[in-house]
Simulated scan of single mutants.
Amino acid sequence: MVSDADKERLKQLDARIAAAKSARKPKPHSEEHYSQAHLAWRMVIELVAGLGIGFGIGYGLDYVLETLPIFLVLFTLLGFAAGVKTMMRTAKEAGSLAQAKQAEDEGN
């Protein structure tokens, strides 16, 4: 059985753990434009990465198969489409996070 003294020590330990966890919580951004700029750069990088990968694959296929730059154009367009799709997914994710935060703020 657990004695009363042990129960009291456990309660004190729980309080110390809760205090330590609350001290380690990340502080919210004081400037909203910082997170928006981060999101914008992420979207730009996703688009450029899609274009670069598509260009690389298309150029490689054209070089190996010794064809006209048909694969280069085709895969660059496919890379652009993939980049846009990834950007849209990121925008949707950011929108749903913003809606959840707004609902949480209204609930409090």
Rank of each mutant, 00 (worst) to 15 (best):
V2A: 01
S3E: 06
D4R: 07
A5W: 10
A5H: 10
E8Q: 12
R9I: 05
R9H: 07
K11R: 12
L13W: 08
L13A: 14
L13Y: 14
D14P: 08
R16P: 01
K21I: 05
K25H: 00
P26F: 11
P26N: 09
Q36I: 11
Q36H: 13
Q36L: 12
A40P: 05
M43V: 03
M43H: 00
V44E: 03
E46W: 02
A49D: 06
G50E: 02
L51Y: 00
L51D: 01
G52I: 15
F55Y: 11
F55S: 13
G56A: 14
Y59K: 13
L61D: 03
L61R: 07
V64G: 02
T67G: 10
P69G: 08
F71E: 03
L72C: 07
L72T: 15
V73E: 00
L78Y: 04
F80R: 06
F80Q: 10
G83A: 02
G83Q: 03
V84I: 15
K85H: 15
T86L: 11
M88S: 04
A91W: 12
K92C: 03
A94Y: 13
G95L: 05
G95P: 11
S96W: 09
A98E: 12
A98I: 02
A98H: 08
K101F: 00
K101E: 11
A103M: 14
D105V: 09
E106D: 14
N108Q: 14
